[in-house]
Structures are given as structure tokens and as C-alpha cells.
Design a protein around this nucleic acid. Structure first.
Length: 490
RNA sequence: GGGCCUCUAGCUCAACGGUAGAGCAGUUGACUCUUAAUCAAUUGGUUCAGGGUUCGAAUCCCUGGGGGCCCA
């Protein structure tokens, strides 16, 4: 390891401590309390002269003034001031604190609780030991660590110094716990399905590929859990869900990370209208768990997660924003003429369905700030969703939008194996025509459907994007602990 | 994939064609109630990398790399 000057100074201190018989990385710690508890019961403990031992990181500057010194110790539950005097601690450890310990070192401190002259709750230290020497120095005392790249590459440091970042991931955990609580209460069974899949499916995306050496077999990292979860509905579970990582071999931007966390759930004998109710309940409970309230702010706009959400069909939404009725222009040519006649700027797409999707994304989605369901997508865009009984060109599918981001996607699941086979074949033609996101044929999934899958409602929700909204962060990297970063030259 | 911006000490930032600097951190010293402690002194640089222009480049140009924003 090559050490810079500041690291070398700290390493030299470490060696001096070793030379004096002090283990800079002892095996065990023995705190009796956490800082949060000490602070919560400070006056009680102080009155009882309760001996307290805490363990944590020295943060902020050490303030050394001759024969006494001050420092702050932080243990992940809170921060408390240490009052250190030569008289109480003894000459040897007082001088070690002054000469060999640094900000960021991890220590254990014992003593009694008292307030200082200025009233600050403090631990008056009678015993101090080193638990782990920090060789890396802290960033700037007030500005802290600002550089976004360094914050993400060294998330550990980001978490040490930026406590609001710690809170984001606590809120994330609370939201996911709330999600599980809702699903468990409704009788869904939490399951785990393969990440390594011989056939990928369940979404329109390009996969990562890998290889199993012993089997001599190529495999894909899953892009969705859908087709395995539906096999479990065939298997007889009335409801299943999975929360886990999906992997999509696509670009990285502020709302896309190549690996991301998705919840998918499937409920037998339900349809997409049930899934809308479920989304409303899940989002409300997640908002409350993460932020404390069902109304939150995202980038200056208030979002209201109380039901009911706005519902409109995709066709209605597009008419409202563009004047074009996709139910009446049902060929690619007619649609393009209508777009041209309406003077709309739109990138040309190869199929009617993709063109509709483009029109929607460009002219409708940016307006979907308040929680909104968009219903009834074209069948071309929805190879796993059941057709509408009264309009087979469209499917019983909705997407959930919040803050102009898609956060959920749900269908009444296609359970007709013959229709499903035809959809796969159409996808195969699209793939041959150059659509790299087209669905693969999955004969084992078709075999499962041939045993009969009950009418089923299914739902997927993107947890990272939901957390962007709930944590009020416009970049997905701020809500993923270790976001994907390009490898840096060594 | 395209456009724009950006990369300087451990960190936060100056210097914008003419001696690479400040603050914080660090180091040395003083100091028994500080809390952005104070006071005095002080160390620290492959200016992302490589090439070019120039008497002279952190600065201008080119290529490459990392990051950010916008667009696709």
C-alpha cells in the first residue's frame, strides 16, 4: 500500500502504539450502552452516577487545551461529547490521546456522565482504549465530502460524514419493511426464484449473459421475476411475491442503474383492478414508513399518496394531451399522419405500438406528477397481458406514475397458452426485425400454462424509483448504496 | 450514442498565458470547560493522463480517461 503524507503520519502513530504495547486493532469491544440510550436517559444516569462504557468513532476536531481535552464520539446511534482530563484519565492515556489518536479513530471510553459548564451532556472519561486506528484522514471539517463521484465510489466515507445519506437508507429499509407488511397481511407468500436463467423474460430489455462452467451452459441474469412467479401461481399458491435485484444491460442515467430492486407479486383470481388498489395501499404505507406522512414533497412539489389515484386510459390521456385518438388511427401510417397533422415532433418508431409508446412518453408522461394510473396499453407493447374482452387491440394493463416516473406496471395476466404462444412468436419476429428488447420464446412457461393458470393479477414496482420520490432525490444513485460506477484507471 | 460543463494539496476551493495559492485538516509549541476553541510557527503539488502550440501552459489546442447536467 502506498501511503500519502497524512496516511503515513497516522501509520507512524500506529507503530508507536504497537511499540508501547497497545494493540491498534484489538479483537473485542465491551460497550455497556449505545450513545442514543445514554443521551435519552442522561439525567437519570448522571444522578445515579451510572458507570458507562461506549464505543464509537471520534468525529470532528479534537480540542486539546493543555491538561484537558474535548472530542465527540459517534456510534451510529448518536454523538456525545467526551471530556478528557489528564487528572481523570492518567498521564499515559491522556498523552496517547493527544499524540497518537486522531479524528476517525474508533475508541472505547468509560466514565461518568456530567454536563459541562456550558451544559453539554458529556462523558467524563476515566478509561480510554483504542479499538481501531483510522489511517485515512477525514474530509474537510465543514464542507465535508461534496464530490458526487467520491461520495459514490467511497460510500463508506459518505455515510460516515453525511448523516442525511444514512437516513435515506434507513427510510428505504422502513419502506421495504412496510411493503412486506402489507403483502404478508394480504396472504402473499414471499418466495425466491432464480437469478440465473436459461431463458430470460418478463420485460422488454437486454440481458447480461454469463456462463456455467460445469454445465457448459450459457445463462442470463434475470431481467424480471415474472415468468417464474407465474409458474408458482400455476403450482397452486394463491399469492406470491419476490423482492430482489433485476439486471438490465442498458444505459446508466439518473433513473436507470444496471441492477435495481423490484417487487413483483401475483394474486390468483384477481385482475388489474385489484392491483390498482394494492398499489395505492403499498405506496401510501411506504410513504408513511419512509417520511412519516402520506403527503410528501418531491423537488418542490407536493405529492399526495392518499387514494384514490387518478385513473385514465392511455388512449384518453393521449387524446387529452395531443388531440390524437389512437383508437381511430390504428395503423402505423395513419398514426404518423396524425402526428404530422398535429404538428408534433416525434421520433419515428418501427411499429404502431412502439410509436404509441413514444407519443405517450413524449407528450403525456411528463405531466403525470401526481400519482396516476394509466390503463389499457396496446397489445403490441404487452406480450404477457390479457386482452381487453371488449377491445382485443388493447390489454388489461396499467402503469403507475409518480413525479413523471414509472414506478409500477401491472396486468391481468395472460393465461391462454395459445395466445401466449402467438405473442412469443410475434416477439420473435420483432427480435428478428431488430428489436433487441423483444421477448424470448419460453417453452417451459408455455408448458406451465398448459396445466391451467387461474385468472391472475400481477404487479411489479421499482423500489429504487419509489425511493427517489420518497427521499426527494432526483438521481437513482442517491438511493442505491453502491451505484454502478465505471472502473477507474489504477 | 450526441452536446455542454468539469477534474488543482487529504478535503473545500482560488489562480484563466508570466513565481501554483488560501481555508480546513495535519505537524511543532502554549493553554484545565471547549464546541467552526484560541494564539504562534510550519509541512504538504506528476494541476486526471499523454501529446501539441508558445520564450513561457494548471490556463490555449488535440487525443484518451473519470464525473456531472442536458438531449437521444
Amino acid at each position: 500500500m502506498e501511503l500519502n503524507d497524512l496516511q503515513a503520519q497516522r501509520a507512524a502513530k500506529l507503530e508507536r502504539l504497537r511499540g508501547a504495547g497497545v494493540d491498534p486493532f484489538p479483537t473485542r469491544a465491551a460497550p455497556t450502552h449505545q450513545v442514543a440510550e445514554v443521551l435519552a436517559r442522561f439525567d437519570e444516569f448522571a444522578a445515579a452516577a451510572m458507570p458507562v462504557t461506549i464505543a464509537g468513532r471520534i468525529v470532528g476536531a479534537r480540542r486539546i487545551m493543555g491538561k484537558i481535552a474535548f472530542a465527540h464520539l459517534e456510534d451510529g446511534t448518536g454523538t456525545i461529547q467526551l471530556w478528557i482530563s489528564r487528572a481523570d484519565l492518567g498521564e499515559v492515556w491522556f498523552e496517547r490521546f493527544r499524540d497518537e489518536l486522531d479524528t476517525f479513530d474508533i475508541v472505547q471510553a468509560s466514565g461518568a456522565l456530567r454536563r459541562t459548564k456550558t451544559g453539554e451532556a458529556s462523558l467524563f472519561v476515566t478509561e480510554l482504549t483504542l479499538l481501531a486506528k483510522a489511517i485515512n484522514p477525514p474530509p474537510e471539517k465543514w464542507a465535508g465530502l461534496q464530490d458526487v463521484e467520491e461520495r459514490h465510489r467511497q460510500r463508506y466515507l459518505d455515510l460516515i460524514v453525511n448523516h442525511e445519506v444514512r437516513e435515506i437508507f434507513r427510510a428505504r429499509a422502513r419502506a421495504i419493511t412496510a411493503m412486506r407488511r402489507v403483502l404478508d397481511a394480504r396472504g402473499f407468500l414471499e418466495v425466491e426464484t432464480p437469478v440465473l436463467q436459461p431463458v430470460y423474460g418478463g420485460a422488454a430489455a437486454r440481458p447480461f449473459t454469463t456462463y456455467h462452467n460445469a454445465l457448459g451452459q450459457g445463462l442470463y441474469l434475470r431481467i424480471a421475476t415474472e415468468l417464474y412467479l407465474k409458474r408458482l401461481i400455476v403450482g397452486g399458491y394463491p399469492g406470491v411475491y419476490e423482492i430482489g435485484k433485476n439486471f438490465r444491460n442498458e444505459g446508466v442515467d439518473r433513473s436507470h442503474n444496471p441492477e435495481f430492486t423490484m417487487m413483483e407479486c401475483y394474486q390468483a383470481y384477481a385482475d388489474y383492478t385489484h392491483m390498482m388498489l394494492l398499489v395505492e395501499e403499498l405506496m401510501r404505507e411506504m410513504a408513511v414508513a419512509a417520511t412519516g406522512a402520506p403527503r410528501t414533497r418531491y423537488q418542490g412539489q407536493e405529492l399526495d399518496f392518499e387514494r384514490p389515484w387518478v385513473r385514465m386510459t392511455m388512449a384518453e390521456a393521449i387524446v387529452e394531451r395531443t388531440g390524437i385518438d389512437i383508437r381511430e388511427v390504428s395503423t402505423l401510417g395513419a398514426l404518423r399522419e396524425a402526428v404530422a397533422a398535429a404538428n408534433l415532433k416525434l421520433e419515428p418508431k418501427p411499429t404502431w405500438g412502439k410509436q404509441v409508446d413514444e407519443l405517450f412518453s413524449e407528450y403525456v408522461q411528463p405531466h403525470l406528477v401526481q400519482p396516476t394510473f394509466i390503463l389499457d396499453y396496446p397489445v403490441e407493447l404487452s406480450p404477457l397481458a390479457k386482452r381487453k374482452p371488449d377491445d382485443p387491440a388493447f390489454t388489461e394493463r396499467f402503469e403507475a406514475f409518480v413525479a413523471a416516473m414509472e414506478v409500477g406496471n401491472a396486468f391481468t395476466e395472460l393465461n391462454d397458452p395459445f395466445d401466449q404462444e402467438q405473442r412469443f412468436l410475434e416477439q420473435g419476429r420483432d427480435f428478428a426485425a431488430g428489436d433487441e428488447e423483444a421477448h424470448q420464446m419460453d417453452t417451459d412457461f408455455l408448458n406451465a400454462l398448459l396445466y391451467g393458470m387461474p385468472p391472475t393479477g400481477g404487479l411489479g414496482m421499482g423500489i429504487d424509483r419509489i425511493m427517489m420520490v420518497l427521499a426527494d432525490r432526483p438521481n437513482i444513485r442517491e438511493v442505491i448504496l453502491f451505484p454502478h460506477m465505471r472502473k477507474r484507471e489504477e
